[in-house]
Write a protein that binds this DNA or RNA. Structure first.
Length: 810
DNA sequence: GTAGGGTTAG
């Protein structure tokens, strides 16, 4: 008999004897050689196995087990299983081998079948260990825990392996303090409390349990720390487990303390701390450590770089990010594929977040190998830049998608006003078998608010509750806005007031809901309540507040809040805030004050400022100032059609028809498609157009006459509020008031009244139904005795018998 | 044991 290993993959087989015992020994030795070449020994093993078959040798017992083991370990489960199935009475070793192999291959179900098929009398500790590992591996912590209990009840003594597996399984379901402590006791009693791997696993359970929202993190982290401090032997894992534990529990000082005590600081530890600083937005500190690491000559890896780019995505560090990009290209001579994918992915997101979408796309295009994250990153780059068509095209070409991909696209649609497509995509995602997460729900709900699909929104709300996501902040915040935009402000309020925890987004949403419904005073009341509860207002809160003041004509209050923004809350007003302030002043016809604000602004006025001024001038027919604003606006954004429309309407409001005619000629010459002061009403594919401010237009004349007639009746029935309401019909009435009900809307009503009952009506354009308009519509429905339905791109309103409801329409 | 891709408010 001769066995020779001539090369790593060749085995010379030579059988000279027929003594079965000797043959068995011979094969055992051959398999021993194969075993030591796992995982590349597959063909070698096949040769030995084939040899057995041709020579009539029937492998049994430990030889068969070894063969199964090798097949399993060299990723050939198929052969292993085939062999196993032909064993009349497989012993515990064969079974355990297969359980381990199936578990490693991710097939817990088969592992469980084998385990369940193993008689109790045959089971041993190793077999239990294997099955517990299988459960932990498949993230089934409960099953792991249960089997651990069963094992102990049956009198098996757990060992290191048992504890490590059951602890790693338990880490998945760690949300109960008692669980950890019980297991801790068992570990101590078993005498394995000094084994490094077991203590590491125990620390890991404490750490994960501390991250659970249901427990007090600090005491669990202290237990973990005590375990760590008392460990007789610490390995790399011990250090990183405790450091990342602190980082995950937002205790960067704790992490830092342990980190500083490390003799040899591991790259993983650096990375973990740096990423912690980035997540907590301590960007300077993150970058400081990054630099320190670099100066100390520690080799930085893809994890370090991705955190660094994430820090640089803030915009303040754009140049640094660019430099780092160049540095990596220069110094990484032979980067691995993993390195390239990770770093490029983070570069895509870096460039995109700094507003350089095309640079982000360039990185994506240049990548030789991409993964799902690359696709998602470039998709969200386009979505955030509002380039929805490019996003759509990326989405359709993506070779694989996950929940995140769908969520990005759904919210991309909703953010860009494509509500129907958002809802459609959400449904498609579900029919593809992907369970929505709360972010996806938030996107779908926002889609509903975009098209005012109240009934659909209500259904989603119900499903949200059913699937247990109703505690989700983002979904609830989206619900507030959905109900508000569908004019069911009571439901918006109900969602807000029943939320178990709210954030500034929730407050902003609710304040905006009130402000948009003309309830300016209530909006301010809620804002003050927010301050009382010590929630810090942010930039958006102030935008909302300024709008609310503007709509309610609360000039003094608006100015006060504008000033307090900087003085009390340290928020520097941006151009958008100045825009709202100017809007506020102009609506109150305080033009010289508005002009003063523009002159004193710390930056050059841009398009939003001039636009606010122009709209104010349009409202009051302030032709001179308006013309100046329009001129500036046309210099800055020459292709923006809205400017022409505003300008034309301004002249119309002032009754300067010659100038208006000039603007309209200009519009025709420059190919502007929009009509000044128009509303479109589409009825079963035909479109009626009403030119509202063009007094000479016969349809508009009709509207004006009609409204003039109705106004006294409205006042009599109380549909006109006491103050600050005006139908935009006569010059004198306009001057009386700070506000104007958009005459476009009234034109729409006028048009609707002439339509057959039940006709499908879609109203395009940005016709927001403010509180005043609401009253006018209610009144119309009462007077003319028919239902009026308005879909204004944002909301859906159903007026009937002098009331408005927005339900039961979709 | 570490990273990179998401949401909601104007």
């Amino acid at each position: 008999m001769r066995i020779a290993l001539t090369s790593p993959t060749t085995l010379t087989l030579n059988i000279l004897q027929t003594d079965t015992r000797a043959v068995a020994n011979y094969y055992a030795a051959a398999l021993h050689l194969c075993f030591h070449q796992i995982p590349t020994s597959y063909s070698l093993t096949r040769t030995v196995h084939a040899h057995m078959i041709t020579s009539g040798f029937n492998p049994r017992g430990h030889i068969l087990n070894r063969l199964i083991d090798i097949y399993c370990k060299s990723s050939n489960l198929f052969y292993a299983l085939h062999l196993f199935d032909n064993i009349p009475q497989p012993d515990i070793i064969a079974r355990t081998t297969l359980i381990t192999a199936h578990s490693a291959a991710g097939n817990t179900k088969i592992a469980k079948e084998i385990f369940d098929g193993t008689p109790l009398s045959m089971r041993d500790r190793v077999c239990y260990n294997a099955m517990i590992t299988a459960y932990s591996h498949s993230c089934d912590g409960n099953a792991a825990m249960e089997l651990f209990r069963e094992m102990r009840l049956l009198g098996f003594q757990p060992d290191n392996y048992t504890f490590t597996s059951v602890l790693s399984g338990l880490a998945l379901i760690a949300d109960r303090e008692t669980h950890c402590q019980q297991l801790h006791c068992v570990v101590l009693k078993s005498g394995t409390g000094f084994v490094t791997s077991v203590v590491n696993a125990l620390i890991s359970v404490y750490v994960k349990c501390a991250s659970s929202p249901l427990v007090v993190a600090s005491s669990l982290m202290s237990s973990a720390r005590r375990l760590f401090d008392e460990m007789p032997v610490k390995d790399e894992l011990s250090w990183t487990t405790i450091i990342t534990g602190y980082v995950k529990n937002d205790d960067l000082d704790g992490a830092r303390q342990v980190f500083d005590g490390m003799d040899v600081k591991l790259v993983v530890a650096w990375n973990s701390i740096i990423s912690g600083y980035v997540h907590k937005s301590f960007l300077h500190e993150a970058l400081r450590m990054f630099r320190e690491m670099h100066l100390l000559g520690i080799k930085q890896d893809e994890f370090t770089y991705t955190s660094a780019f994430s820090a640089c995505s803030d915009g303040r560090f754009y140049r640094l990010g660019k430099q780092l990009h160049g540095y990596i290209i220069r110094t990484e001579n032979c980067p691995s594929q993993e390195f390239l994918i990770s770093v490029n992915n983070s570069l895509i997101s870096f460039y995109s977040k700094c507003g350089m979408v095309d640079d982000a796309k360039k990185i994506f295009d240049k990548m030789e190998v991409r993964d799902l994250v690359s696709g998602n990153a470039v998709l969200s780059a386009y979505v955030n830049a509002g380039r929805i068509n490019e996003a759509r095209s990326i989405f359709s070409k993506m070779p694989e998608r996950n929940l995140l991909t769908w969520t990005v696209m759904i919210s991309g649609f909703s953010q860009n006003g494509f509500g129907e497509e958002g809802i459609k995509l959400f449904n498609q995602m579900r029919s593809n078998g992907l369970g929505p997460c709360d972010y996806a729900y938030a996107g779908a709900i926002t889609s509903c608010s975009v098209i005012a699909a109240l009934e659909h929104g209500r259904q989603l709300h119900a499903q949200l509750i059913q699937s247990g996501f109703d505690s989700s902040l983002s979904a609830s915040n989206a619900l507030i806005t959905m109900y508000a935009r569908c004019s069911v402000i009571e439901d918006a309020s109900l969602v807000f007031h029943t939320m178990s925890c709210v954030d500034s987004v929730s407050w902003n949403a609710m304040i905006a809901a009130l402000g948009q419904h003309g309830k300016g005073a209530q909006a301010l009341e809620l804002f003050n309540q927010m301050l009382k509860e010590e929630i810090l207002p942010d930039r958006i809160t102030f935008l909302t507040i300024l709008s609310a003041c503007s709509h309610a004509g609360l000039v003094r209050e608006g100015r006060h809040y504008f000033d307090s923004m900087h003085d009390l809350y340290g928020i520097t007003p941006g151009e958008d805030h100045y825009g709202r302030l100017i809007d506020l002043l102009c609506r109150a016809a305080m033009f010289s004050e508005a002009k003063d604000v523009i002159d004193m602004m710390p930056f050059e006025p841009g398009a939003p400022i001039w636009e606010a001024l122009l709209s104010g001038c349009r409202l009051h027919g302030n032709v001179d100032l308006g013309a100046e604003a329009a001129e500036r606006l046309l210099e800055l954004t020459p292709h923006h059609d809205g400017t022409y429309v505003l300008l034309a309407n301004m002249y119309a409001t002032a009754g300067r028809w010659d100038e208006m005619a000039k603007v309209r000629k200009l519009m025709r010459d420059r190919g502007v498609k929009k009509e000044p002061g128009c509303s479109w009403i589409e009825v079963e594919n035909s479109v009626h157009v009403f030119l509202v401010n063009d007094i000479e237009h016969p349809e508009v004349q009709g509207v004006y006459e009609y409204l003039k007639e109705l106004l006294p009746k409205m006042k009599k029935l109380g549909y006109v509020p006491d103050t600050k309401f005006a139908l935009h019909i006569t010059e004198s009435e306009q001057q009386e008031s700070n506000l104007s009900t958009h005459s476009e809307k009234l034109a729409v009503v006028f048009g609707l009244l002439k339509l057959p009952v039940g006709a499908t009506v879609r109203v395009f354009k940005n016709l927001r139904i403010c509180g005043d308009c609401h009253n006018a519509f209610k009144f119309m429905s009462l007077v003319v005795g028919r239902e009026i339905v308005v879909r204004d791109g944002k909301r859906f309103h159903h007026f009937k018998e002098g009331q408005c409801s927005c339900g039961n329409y979709w």
